[in-house]
Design a protein around this nucleic acid. Structure first.
Lengths: 341, 341
DNA sequence: TTGAAAGCGCTAACAT
DNA sequence: ATGTTAGCGCTTTCAA
């Protein structure tokens, strides 16, 4: 039974060894490699060569200890890396990578105790900042006051007004969605969403606002159920059976929208000819599989992650941090479910 | 414009400060807090109290430097944290958290150059091990030979036989799927999958094997297209138009299965009465939204992540590591699309 | 039982 | 231009 450990692992090379091989002192090695001190060209070449020969890799742990910073940020996610959190996280990794900052990932599972535990762990590991992210756009409790490092919330914004948060501007997104339906000639708009939470409330309010300012109102009471296709189908049927006249539906997410579209189609109502339907999230799998493909509001989650990371990096850099909730623009991605062709 | 930085961040407390407050030496503080040295009960109480009062948090960077290990592993994912990678990652975080090991996350985007860059970054940061994960169950190149730390691959297995990988046993999964169809009374089985890759090849071969050993064969040439619902619908139609008699379909993933189910249903073929359909992945969103709900092969991705992390932790602990590909059992989750009611 | 001292690997003043 | 020295914050011998 061969074990990988048969071959003893290569020893870790230190600056001292490089120094010896290059015939210089340790500090000269440091200067030569960092390019920060005055070193004769020829000497530097010798050092570089020695470092390469020995495959030297500086010990960032030592550097961190000395510098008092680790070029690392901690990320606490409260959901299980769902389809909403992943793009946020990915956007953050990209921006952080550009700054040579690594990312420690923890899943707090929305449990305060676990979160506190991870925050403490981050502090002991001397991360330079913390990013908190959650699956939905909802207000959450602050992670802790009086932290020696900056904290930024992404998606799930902090209810503490002293904290900085970055979220998609889904209010404006809902406005765009409603305006898009109006722009494609619909005037009798219905609204279907999932649980009555922050997102639903804001989207509903903004949808109503747009209608009101056009002298219109919702064609039917808002239908609130679950965030699922099943509910979308049910809601679609309910709309049909209600007998109210409607020609457009704003849906709380793409699954609901897809369900609505299906139930309409299966009951002989043409989408988009008779009714235009628009969803939220712009989730590729859903919008593409739907027949017809769904128009949807893209939440710019990637940008949210990037913006949150950028804010954090700036705060770490000592530029201070604007508290409050920052909103990143959403945009309508029109597809066939609302086209006027 | 108030800035968070107005209030200067609390200074970091060191063991020296705790020592001073407790009226003991630094080394006594270390012993008292770690519980590793001989300290008088009363002294320890004083130290503990001082530490609590000052809100002392040991600097793990210093500890790491001294110990020569960081209790950190690096994770390189090659896809963008998709629905397949996320559960693997989550499983890994859980197991690692149990061992007080933190996780540095990088997205290599499947780009060798970026991957190498991140590996080097991990090495400089002195991670204790590396976990490599990718979106699909396919063979990939090794990350690098001669690394001073253990590496484990999850999902995307390494083609280098000296590496250790953990993957779902989707071959056995396919066998279970086929057997499940046989067990529910189907004998004329068709096969629909996405791109002809490792996963498709293995699943097809194993499906055939099951049929063969029951004296059966595929009812129709394997249909290979894309990993989408659209393709599933198309394939379903193709099967119907071909005129061949079939009463069961093994599908490469849940999206395809859902497409197949839909096209059958829309063309008057009852699922599961006339035809049983089973998918792969057991993706909640898909299996639940399908009408009827889909039976599917669960890939145990969470367990794959856990197993990979456990393997890595053991290797870090110096227990050596069994090279080769380890397969984690998959299991059929029966739902209505194959029921015999 | 406690403390002094050495040192993990590195950088940055300060000498030379 | 190069080397010497003094730490970063901690753990761990080793003396007392």
């Amino acid at each position: 039974m061969p074990k990988t450990s048969d071959t003893s692992p290569p020893r870790r090379v230190t600056a001292a060894e490089v120094a010896e091989r290059a015939g210089v002192s340790i500090s000269t090695v440091s200067k030569a490699l960092s390019g920060r001190g005055a070193v004769r060209y020829e000497t530097r070449q010798r050092v570089l060569e020695a470092a390469r020969d020995l495959n030297y890799q500086s010990n960032e742990v030592a550097v961190s200890l000395l510098a008092g910073k680790t070029n690392t940020v901690g990320v606490i996610t409260s959901d299980r890396l769902g389809r909403l959190t992943s793009p946020v996280l990915l956007g953050a990794t990209e921006t952080l990578a550009e700054h040579e900052i690594a990312l420690l990932l923890c899943d707090g599972r929305g449990d305060r105790i676990r979160e506190q535990y991870f925050v403490d762990s981050f502090l002991r590991r001397r991360v330079d900042g913390i990013l908190v992210t959650g699956s939905g756009i909802f207000g959450r409790d602050t992670i802790r006051v009086d932290l020696p490092i900056p904290v930024v919330y992404a998606m799930a914004w902090s209810k503490d007004s002293r904290d900085a948060s970055v979220v998609p501007d889904d209010g404006a997104g809902a406005r765009s969605a409603a305006e898009h339906l109006l722009a494609t000639g619909r005037t009798k708009i219905a609204f279907v969403s999932g649980r009555r939470d922050d997102a639903t409330t804001i989207r509903l309010a903004n949808t109503r606002e747009v209608l009101t300012s056009s002298g219109l109102r919702l064609a039917h009471e808002p239908l609130i159920g679950q965030w699922s296709e099943g509910w979308g189908r049910q809601a679609g049927l309910q709309l049909l059976k209600s007998g109210v006249d409607f020609d457009g539906v704003v849906c709380g997410n793409d699954q609901i929208a897809r369900g609505v579209v299906e139930s309409l189609r299966e009951n002989g109502v043409a989408v988009p000819q008779a009714v235009g339907v628009i969803g939220f999230d712009n989730w590729d799998v859903m919008v593409e599989a739907s027949r017809p493909p769904l128009s949807s509001v893209d939440l710019s989650l990637h940008e949210v992650g990037q913006a949150a990371a950028r804010t954090l990096v700036e705060a770490i850099g000592g530029d201070g941090m604007q508290p409050g909730v920052r909103r990143v623009a959403c945009h309508v991605v029109p597809r066939e479910s609302t086209s006027t062709a």
